[in-house]
Design a protein around this nucleic acid. Structure first.
Lengths: 123, 123
DNA sequence: CCGAATCCGTGTCGATACTG
DNA sequence: CAGTATCGACACGGATTCGG
């Protein structure tokens, strides 16, 4: 078994390592919304529009197992579960902000490209 | 209706928009390696270890259709194809650097978490 | 919040056109 | 036969939909 950090680096690069954590289809969005503060499960599902409850829970569990989010079950009726970013998850969400800014800045271009790239002179 | 940004924003947020472009499993890695300069297809496939030729070509085509990379077929024998980042792709690759840095910084923690999180005192 | 059926993205293998 | 870039059929795993 490998115990040394050098041996525990089966990644191509830092980006590859990060992708192992946010590799899920919706994980980056979860990080993004959780960045503003703790959220209940339902709140999260409504925010990340398009995700199914099954997958959201699944990816939430993975993020929890990877030490990115913290799940708090208040054991109440009706069920009340909060999800919060750990310090590690917070730093990860912070690393996503530049990507978020890029998406905002080029949203029109991206939308045009996704639509079929018929014309790019939208500005 | 001249395609105002508000109309061309079918995204939840900027991060959502960015994910439409780098949504593929290997696209971020492609951006990362292409960031250093033009690369031939074979070079790219050897760099992004783990990706199959079929999927790499597929995602390369999508990136090209989205205006992120530029495909240059030299029409030579043997086949010679170069892939380069467009200015847009270059800015996208730049937005990924913070994520890359995060992965490098926490690579040991990530590796431990992926291994099952048995212990985190690897340092 | 979990399970079964289904669809889509991805991985594996094989095939193609042409040169050395 | 070996190498380069690309595509096709098939199978697996992840993601969505529906049902409990």
């Amino acid at each position: 078994m490998n115990t040394k950090p050098e041996d525990n680096f089966p990644f191509i690069c830092g980006l590859d390592a990060a992708l192992r954590v946010i590799g899920g289809k919706w994980k980056p969005l979860v990080l993004y919304f959780l960045r503003k503060g703790p959220m209940r499960y339902g709140e999260l599902q409504r925010s990340v529009r398009g995700v199914s409850d099954k997958v959201l829970i699944q990816q939430l569990k993975e993020l929890e197992a990877h030490g990115i989010v913290l799940r708090t079950d208040h054991r109440e009726i009706p069920p009340r579960v909060d999800y919060t970013l750990t310090p590690l998850g917070c730093s990860l969400a912070d690393a996503l902000t530049s990507l978020c800014g890029w998406g905002e800045k080029h949203s029109a271009t991206i939308a045009a490209a996704l639509a079929g790239r018929e014309k790019e002179g939208v500005g």
